[in-house]
Amino acid sequence: MPALMRLAVVLFATGLATAALAASADGFKAAYAKAEAAENQAGALKNQWTTTEAELKAAKKAADAGNFNDAIKHAQQAEALANASIAQAKEQATAWKNAVVR
């Protein structure tokens, strides 16, 4: 009985772990896809930031190491940076004219 119980506990724990793992891996994939889409949009505007690229790389690296919490954080940071670079490009599309030497 104790042996059975131990087995049950182990099985239960593994089940939890894989569930958490699956959620994290999926969560990472979703977060990374969003970040990548934003960065591609910045690329179309020829206005990517090196810091966005660095966060994307860090996200991949953390995910490869199975560290999905960190990976998701990096992906979210990359998305925020990419969105800021898109906003910058849109604002500058007209604002540059105010800076021209006249």
């Binding site: 206005n47 930031w49 090196t50 810091t51 940076l81 800021a84 670079s85 910058q88 490009a89 500058q92 604002a95 540059w96 004219k97 800076a99 021209v100």
Partner: peptide, 11 residues
């Protein structure tokens, strides 16, 4: 030439 870019926001 006059467009600000990069995280530092410089043209």
């Amino acid at each position: 030439f006059y467009t600000r870019r990069g995280q530092l926001n410089f043209s």
